[in-house]
Design a protein around this nucleic acid. Sequence first.
RNA 1: GCCCUCGUAGUUCAACGGAUAGAACGAUUCCGUCCUAAGGAAUAAAUGUAGGUUCAAUUCCUGCCGGGGGCACCA
Length: 575
Amino acid sequence: MIKQKLQQAIGDALADLKIGVIDFSLEYPNDVEHGDLSTNAALIHAKITKQNPRVLAEKIVLELEKQRKSGVFRKNKLSEVERIEIAGPGFINFYFTREFFAKTVEQILKDGSEYGKNNLHKGRKVMIEYTDPNPFKPFHIGHLMSNAIGETISRLFENAGAEVKRAYYGGDVGLHVAKAIWGMMKTPYDKSGKETEIAYIGRVYAEGNTAFESDPILADNIKEINKKIFEHSDAKIEELYKWGREISIKHFHEIFPKLDTRFDFEFYESEMAPIGMFLVDEFLQKGIFEKSEGAIVFKGEKYGLHTRVFVNSQGIPTYEAKELGLAKRKIETYPFDLSISVTGNEQNEYFKVLLKVIEFIFPETANKMRHISHGMLRFAEGKMSSRKGNVITGESLIHDVEKMVAEKIADRELNGEEKKQILDTVAIAAIKFSILKQAPGNDIIFDFEKSLSFEGDSGPYLQYGSVRANSVLQKAKKEGIKPSQKNIPAEVSEFEKLLARFEEVVEHATVNLAPQNIVTYLLQLSGEFNSYYVANKIVDPTDETASYKVALTAGFVQIMNHGLKLLGISVPEKM
RNA sequence: GCCCUCGUAGUUCAACGGAUAGAACGAUUCCGUCCUAAGGAAUAAAUGUAGGUUCAAUUCCUGCCGGGGGCACCA
């Protein structure tokens, strides 16, 4: 790639000038006026060579020009570079040839969906855990956020050549389950069908939680239930437990396909509890854990962290111990090179402690584990909490957005199949976009009206660009205009320049786990296409450059579809 | 109290230590014989505060102010 080539060339030039190379940047400038690639090499090295940056820049350019002209001495002929300029305080800006951009378009069409893949994680085995809905609790929009982020990270790794396994971890034991079961015992499910089974479970869970918080006696009752669940000692509770667990999991499996997610592994806390207990016992002997007030804890203070309880004074493993069991299970299930857990950022501090403990228990694994957090989903009005029952479930959100899409397309001439496809893909795109447009880790202030817009910066806007371009291609086909590299217009459009940056953007997003980079880029690219579309008639049989314009359009569709796919968003045929 | 994190147009978000801080919504104007107007063109509008490091700071460091999260038997 041109970037590596230039990187090398600049390094060579510096070496020829007998300058010890320190890290310099080589970037696509924000402003196209500043060239197609730009380096700060002269600025960075000016100090150590005690030279004026612009003077040094001139020397570097001179060396580069030598390389460019005499391919005999260098492998890098730099034939893609048309001219090199020095600008501002001492930036060296490279401008590419017309041919370079045309060739890029040719390459995009030739490689098709392969274009934009890279080898950043080639051959690595990666396990990604995300979504993590808990049986007996509603699948709410916070899970949607974890899902959107985890799915796009999975796809970025796949795109980078990794072998990715997706996992979800369900909390099917623990106090929340006891709360729900307490609620079920109090008000049994009414089978008349007035309330769906899943809605019922969500409701009784909230009731159990209120009871737990408001009355210490009821809280003790619930803790007792929790112990019985753990011990499997009560037939009635077992029955309710099995029923509720099954309903919940079935419900999750209805949602995942809508989100275009397919898990390879499903882990449950109930399986991890005994493994975790075993590990805690073993390492209690070895002095990693200690007993304190009847519980087994890890004292994190020695490491600048805080103390966490792994087994409570009732003898029941907490989330911490179960997570330890999960780590062991993951290691045994899939020999990963990297394991990523995506959770809400309220678990950040907790994960630091957990990773510390894992350093002692699985010393060879700790540095292969990584925690990525997403922000909280908050409303202008206040925080959502499944404990209080004021949640927006994932299902209802998807349903509401689909309704909005349906209104929008009500008077379109579309057949049933097409309408269904639009409902599915556009609603999901709107939701995923609203999550992925910003850096993960920050809170999302969720506003129904604004967050799910179909206009301006939005998922549907991106889809629209691609659909629109596709319809141009169909027209071109009808008119018999095939994409080609003949009669290329002399001028390079900004649209074309942006197209050539896709690979770089994807790599950057992959390295920094920053899907928002792709979102920003696709928005910009769509904007350029739409402007181009309005300003140019693409399918014009009288225009000899039409075939190249069609090639550009085809390249655009290819890039959009690939970029959106990385975000977990698909494109309908019409919209 | 201690630890983590975030403060960018009226609002919601971008910006690998770089050049004139980008968008969108909202506001004010325009564009309908033409390949999908879920579109395009234009105007106004922002780095919480005080220092420091650097050739260069929204970005790194420190203090202050403000929001969010965490700090033992929840997950």
